[in-house]
Design a protein around this nucleic acid. Structure first.
Lengths: 287, 287
DNA sequence: AGGATTCCATCAGTACTGCTTATCGAGCAT
DNA sequence: ATGCTCGATAAGCAGTACTGATGGAATCCT
């Protein structure tokens, strides 16, 4: 199971074509054909139907494995390579949209930082593969509980802060006047389904016993202002850290106090922090 | 980064010898030397110091990646191979010691099952690599929350039951007469450190806000009776599902009601259940 | 201290793997 | 029927990866 073969296999499966995959990978069609044949022989099972080119049942399983496998492989390579090359001067920081809370903003050095905002579940991969030195992830957790991160690679985490979580309600919402809410009060409402920007509905459902939280509009994107505007316009509810939920025109942020959940932000990095990254972490922990 | 090279690298690192590794892998010493050289050149960093043979800093990082990487590789191969070969008639079931609760015991078919008990964190790997068709894991969780499993491979889980958790106290313990306990009441006591058999202390500590739960004796093993005997003898406290904690001579099982935690058991399997495994799962879910 | 031994690196030779080019046959559209 | 596209196959060649032999450095054992 050469990673090389695996890579061609996923390319062929994605493009549903041997010739296209060959072009993309810089091989001849013949080479791709032989590589797939070799992989199938190695694993002892046909992976693709030809004409049309589509994964078999066994091939589907392999595809599920291939992604994480190749990711980890890249992560390992990046991690080792990082030890060999001299640390750069700039610092690249990737963050989930709502993870960039006040604690971090205040601690950023005046210059030399490149910031990129990604969907939450892309953060660990970006840090692991060396696309960024440091990542910021956030999520819902019981107070002082660590976040549940997908383990794509041996990453270290470091809690930077916790905030109350608020439901963002349109000003006209019947519960908008309340000083605080239980999550169960809102289970039957329609919720914005914004896995990249906000918090995954499945997580809310789990926190509430597995029911409710029917989705309304789905938003794929990483802009929090769009999300808050949607919520203010009554398109659906959403849960945000207090700092992100306050000051939205036409909407009210009401703290959710039951169950006892907080919005937690963690810094993730591979190996040990050095240089600018270490200074950032130290600045964050001081604040 | 050929997995082949990775495998020789971890062998060399483990045995701290090129020649030994060559013998174990069935290569000549020369081949191993060349393989390591190739890997070092590929990654652009020295991985081992020679004489004595020990991993460098970069090599240490690679070792951390190599384990999960090779495990996933095995898992992928086993998963695909499973689709190709006819399903066997026997059923192999691996279980964590305390995961074999009454719900499962009642559902086992009268014949044809091989049962093996492993430490909790070996279960997912055993299922992923095809050593067993079905695994049973358990752990502490909020009611109806799923367990946190290490994701060594794309595995499916399926909740089979939840039980109250009990602290197992020697009959002479001052709190043994109580009808129920808070976890905080026991934070300052000495606890048996039995990560394989019982529940990891770190998890209790996290549930209680990160403090307390100092270890007493450490027990590495998978025999629950030994664990309960240790607890009854006053060697330290331990937390168990009610069914495992009751009926221990000289000890009392007191339910822990705060925080609201349950002992949850889940069935894990790779792909889809078929044959005897599916029948077992169905029998468990009916009970 | 000196010789034997162990251990890893290196070199030369060889078998084999993995690519390219060329060709073929099957399905599809015109 | 006739191109045309797509994947499989055959032959040839270059580079890879192994074995076996040799060399130099460190260690062990008188």
């Amino acid at each position: 199971m050469d990673p090389h073969l695996l890579r061609t296999y996923v390319t062929v499966a994605r493009l549903a074509s041997f010739s296209e995959a060959a072009r993309e990978l810089g091989y001849t069609q013949s080479a791709v054909s032989q590589q797939i044949a070799a992989l199938e022989q190695d694993l002892g099972a046909p992976l693709l139907t030809r004409r049309p080119v589509a994964p078999t049942q066994a091939g589907e399983r392999l595809l599920e494995h291939a992604g994480p496998l190749l990711l980890r492989l890249d992560a390992a390579r990046a991690d080792v390579a990082r030890m060999a090359t001299a640390p750069e001067h700039g610092l690249t920081l990737v963050s989930a949209p709502t993870a960039l809370g006040p604690y971090v903003l205040a601690a950023l050095p005046p210059t030399g930082v490149t910031l990129r905002v990604l969907a939450r579940d892309e953060i660990p991969a970006a840090v692991a593969t060396g696309a960024a030195e440091v990542g910021l992830v956030d999520g819902l957790a019981a107070p002082s509980d660590p976040l549940r991160l997908p383990d794509v690679a041996p990453l270290s985490t470091y809690g930077v802060g916790e905030e109350p979580v608020c439901a963002l309600l349109p000003a006209t919402h019947p519960l908008a006047r309340r000083a605080r809410l239980r999550l169960g009060d809102l289970a039957d409402a329609r919720w914005l389904d914004a896995p990249d920007t906000g918090l995954p509905l499945a997580q809310l459902r789990a926190a509430n016993g597995g029911r409710g939280f029917r989705p309304s509009l789905r938003y794929d994107g990483t802009d929090v202002r769009t999300l808050t505007a949607l919520a203010a316009a009554g398109q659906g509810l959403t849960l945000l850290p207090r700092s992100a939920a306050t000051g939205v025109p036409g909407a009210v942020a009401v703290p959710v106090t039951e169950p006892r959940l907080v919005h937690r932000t963690e810094l993730v990095y591979a190996g040990s922090l050095s240089g600018a990254a270490a200074r950032l972490a130290e600045a964050v922990s001081r604040s």
